[in-house]
Every structure is written in C-alpha cells, then in structure tokens.
Design a protein around this nucleic acid. Structure first.
Lengths: 238, 238
DNA sequence: TTGTATTGGATAGTGTAACTATCCATAATG
DNA sequence: CATTATGGATAGTTACACTATCCAATACAA
C-alpha cells in the first residue's frame, strides 16, 4: 500500500507518520523505485502499537522507542529484557543503593529484593508517595495487594506463548498494556462497590426518590450524580 | 513559617512555589502585614501531594488541580466525586455512547455497565489497545483480572476512614496513589516468577564484568538475593 | 536608624516534546 | 501530458512546566 493508504488505515496524519519514521519509531517503507515506497500491515500494526504505548500507557516517544527496540532486537535473555522494559515504564526513579520500603514490602511477601530491579525503585517511590500524603502502606495492605498482584502475574506467565520469539514481545507488551486494564478494573470495582454501599445512606435531600432502592449504581440521571459530567470544577485562574 | 522555610522544607524552588500559587494549586500564605505572609504544614503537605500526583501518578498540573479541587471542596456525593476523580486519571477518553468491550467485560464480571462512568471509557480504551497489538483480552483473563481487582477494591473500601470528611480524600487519593503500587508489585511479581522459572539459560560466565549490562538485574549471580528452593516461608506460596 | 535581605507580585524567558506545515523535485497515474 | 502523490528536508507551532528577572515594600539585624 502507499502512504495515503497507511494514513487512511491508521488514522494518523501523514506529517506524523513522517515524523515517526524520522524519529526511528516506524520503519520506512520498502522502496519500489527511486521515489516511491511500499507499506504493509507491519506498518499499520506498528503505528497502533506506538499509539497504544503513548496514549494508553502514557509513555513518551523516547520511552516508546526504547520499548520497541527491545521487541525488534530481542535479547535471548528474557529476564534482562523484561527488566529493561520495566525501566521504561513510569514512575521514573534514578537508581539508589537501597530502598527500605520496597525491601520491607518484598520481605513481607517473600519475594526477592534486588535494588537493581527497576521495579523496586518504582515501588519505593510509590510507597513513599502514599506515605507522604497520609495513606501509609500498612503491612496488611501490602500483603493484600502483593498477593493479588502475584496471582495476576502467575496467570500472565502461565499464558505466555510457546515460541520463544514471541515470548519477549508478549512479556514486554503484556506487562505494559495490561496495567491500564487492571487499573481501570480496580476503578470500576471501586465505583461498583461504592454505589452499592453508599448510594443511599448519608445524603438525601427532600425530593429524593427513594434512595434505598437498588444495589445498582446511580440509575438516575441528574447532573449532580453524574460521574464525569463537569470538566473543571475549581476556581480557576488562567 | 516564611517562604524561605517552605522552600527548605519542601525542597521545591521558590519560583516553582510561586508558580503553583499562581496556577491555583497551592493556597497563598495567610498575610501577616501588607507584604508578608505565613505558611504552615498545610502548605508543606500540599506541595508533597502535588509532587506525588504529578511525579508518581503522572498527572499534568491541570489534572492535578482538578483532583485537588475535589478534595478541597468536597461534594457530599462521594460517588460522583469519585467519578470525577477517576476522570482526571489517564488514559483520557472522550465520552462515547457505547463501549462494547467494556460492556462485555463488566457483564462477565457481574458488574454494572454504565457508559457514563469515566472508568468504563478507560477500560474500553485499554482493552482496545491490548486487542490492537495482538494480546487480546480473553474472557478468562478478564475474569482473573476482574476478580483480583475487585478483591483489592473491597479491601480499599473496607479500610476507609470513618469520618465522612476524610472519606473523599481517602477515596480520591487512594485510588490514584495505590495504582502505581499495584503496578509495581505486579511488575516485581513478573520478575520474581520469571527469575525462578527461566533463570538458568544462556547466562553469563562467573567473573564476567559485562559492561553493557550494569543496570540489568540478575538475581541469579548472588546467593544473598536468591530465595532459591524456597527457604523463605512467606505468604508467597500459593 | 540605617542598610541589607526577603518577600509578594508581575512579567518575560527557557527548554523540551510532539507534532504540523511548507517546499521542492520527482514519479506515478489517468 | 497534466495532475496528483510521494519522500525528504526544514522550519514553525503549541502546550507545558518551569525559571529568571525586576521591582517596590517591608522585615530585621547591626
């Protein structure tokens, strides 16, 4: 196919495609003559992948390129590759020599603590943040989160493809792309549970239609209960 | 305390603090005279919160402001507030009328499907992305992820503070700030499981300094980091 | 009291990231 | 043969998150 077709199929503007090629994220088309090149499904898929990593996972183009490079030139050492892929994921932490909170958490979970794992630094940072804002990670909470995280990870690894060539891609992309899925499911579970539990009790004003009714969340339509209804609530300057 | 003290205590440059005040993220100090103002722990904490939301959760200052506004002027309707907070979290999706993948997933999990929940759009987007790159969400996977996500969410809600004033803050910040924790734990579980399972193959030789390799985690070359044949009696064994 | 430092407030400047637009010479297509 | 599309290069744009400078008015220290 020609570029115009790639533009159509990917929904990405030509200028942007050219930009991705320039930046080394997208491979150039195979030349068919001096001034023409041919593109195919590989390009379409690659563009989709770039968009998934930037828009959904939230990576910068730079980090996206790093991840793509891991997939393009697979290192036989899956373990090291996975580590490098994880390092491309936020939050970004510069390597330290010790991560006390992460160490304690991993000890609790009976997992290996090695400060060279990028994810250890990321965990430390996340725990620090939680602590700093006043929702400290209790051992109990760590145990609960860790247990479920591990169960999910077990599932992930148990369902990796057989062919070694694909394993790396599966591991790298699966780690990155199922995080948003998990996050969204947790958010939705919060909403679901909250709607069942607190949909009625505390607040109810005069004209409210029977609030104790259902276990389903907010079937009624009024503005104030509508989740994403208003854009920016605050007293803005700007 | 004065600004200089706030700078010292928060580690954030004065220019940045001024910028945060200008942008409505940080409340001004209470004036003590025409040309002086007083700051306190509220300011210190607020700055920490801003940094946590931007650096760890990865929000823009704009989104951070939205989240802070939710906390500052709590709406008694926790459910709607939670929805708005979720809308400030990535991935950012514009409202559609239907989200087929999310609908199917939620049906599978026995949860409410309401296209007005921001997290529904986020889930759709995440599932689309996973599908587009060739690791499609099987019902089984959805079930596994959903089950664990829900268990975590149950734990979260079961441990919310009693005072209604704090509930909103807990819910909003807990949702946002424990996502990175969960993500990091999953990444670490991947590493841990992978290291146990495929730790052996084409590994380097003993005294090899391997310079290309310095940041790469390799728990295998050091017995201190190696739980090996399960001498650690953690809750890990399932 | 005097002089230096600090403050709040305003405004302008910087650097990066991710595009977007324009130009051009050729090459394919109708 | 005229039109349109293409690849390649280069320049411009927008948004964001700061960062720096300036200034007049204190605050406070000597």
């Amino acid at each position: 196919m020609r570029v115009s077709e790639l533009v159509r199929r990917s929904g990405v503007p030509l200028a942007t495609i050219k930009y991705y090629v320039r930046e080394g994220l997208l491979m150039p088309g195979s030349p068919t003559g001096a001034r023409q090149a041919e593109y195919d499904d590989v390009h379409v898929r690659r563009i989709r992948l770039i968009r998934a990593l930037t828009d959904v996972v939230g990576l910068s183009l730079q980090r996206t390129r790093d991840v793509l490079a891991l997939i393009d030139r697979p290192d036989p050492d899956l373990f090291a590759t996975l580590g490098r892929a994880v390092a491309a994921l936020p939050p970004y932490e510069t390597q330290r020599e010790d991560y006390p909170r992460a160490r304690a958490a991993l000890a609790l979970l009976g997992q290996v603590y090695d400060p060279r794992y990028p994810a250890v630094g990321q965990l430390e940072r996340a725990l620090e943040a939680a602590e700093a804002i006043g929702i400290p990670p209790t051992p109990e909470r760590i145990a609960v989160y860790g247990e479920h995280a591990r169960a999910i990870a077990e599932y992930d690894l148990a369902h990796a493809p057989e062919e070694p060539a694909n394993v790396i891609e599966y591991a790298v992309l699966g780690t990155a792309l199922y995080e948003p899925v998990l996050a969204a499911l947790r958010r939705l579970a919060h909403q679901d549970i909250a709607s069942r539990r607190l949909a009625s009790p505390p607040r109810r004003s005069a004209g409210d239609p029977d609030p104790s009714d259902d276990e389903r969340p907010d079937p009624d339509d009024d503005e104030r209960t509508r989740p994403g209804a208003d854009e920016s609530p605050g007293p803005r300057a700007r």
